[in-house]
C-alpha cells in the first residue's frame, strides 16, 4: 500500500489524501493578459521531476505541501505551508 505522511496525523494510506496539484504563482487577473490567464488556468508542467504540490488529508481536512518525485513515484518531504509560491 502506498503511504503519505500528513504533517499533523502522521503516515496514512495514500487513499486518504487528495492531490491539489503543483504549487504555482497566480497572475493578477485584473492586470494580466488573456494569454497569461489562459496559460495559468490550463497549462501545466507535465514532465517528470521533483514537484512541490498541494495535498489534503481528507478525514482531517489538513492541507499541506508534499515534495514528490513523479518519475520514481516517491514522496520526499511533507510539511505545513509557510507562505510563498
Amino acid at each position: 500500500m502506498k503511504r503519505m505522511t500528513c504533517p499533523v496525523n502522521g503516515p496514512r494510506a495514500i487513499s486518504e489524501f487528495v492531490c491539489g496539484g503543483e504549487i504555482r504563482p497566480m497572475p493578477d487577473p485584473a492586470t494580466c493578459s488573456d494569454d497569461e490567464w489562459a496559460d495559468y488556468v490550463f497549462n501545466r508542467n507535465g514532465s517528470p521531476g521533483v514537484k512541490r504540490e498541494w495535498w489534503c488529508h481528507l478525514p482531517s481536512n489538513t492541507w499541506f505541501v508534499a515534495e514528490r518525485d513523479t518519475a520514481r513515484d516517491v514522496v520526499l518531504r511533507t510539511y505545513l505551508y509557510a507562505g510563498g509560491a
Binding site: 487528495v18 514532465s47 517528470p48 514537484k51 513523479t70 518519475a71 513515484d73
Partner: peptide
C-alpha cells in the same frame, strides 16, 4: 488520481 510518470 495523481500524476506519476511510471508504468508500475
Amino acid at each position: 488520481p495523481y500524476e506519476v510518470q511510471s508504468t508500475r
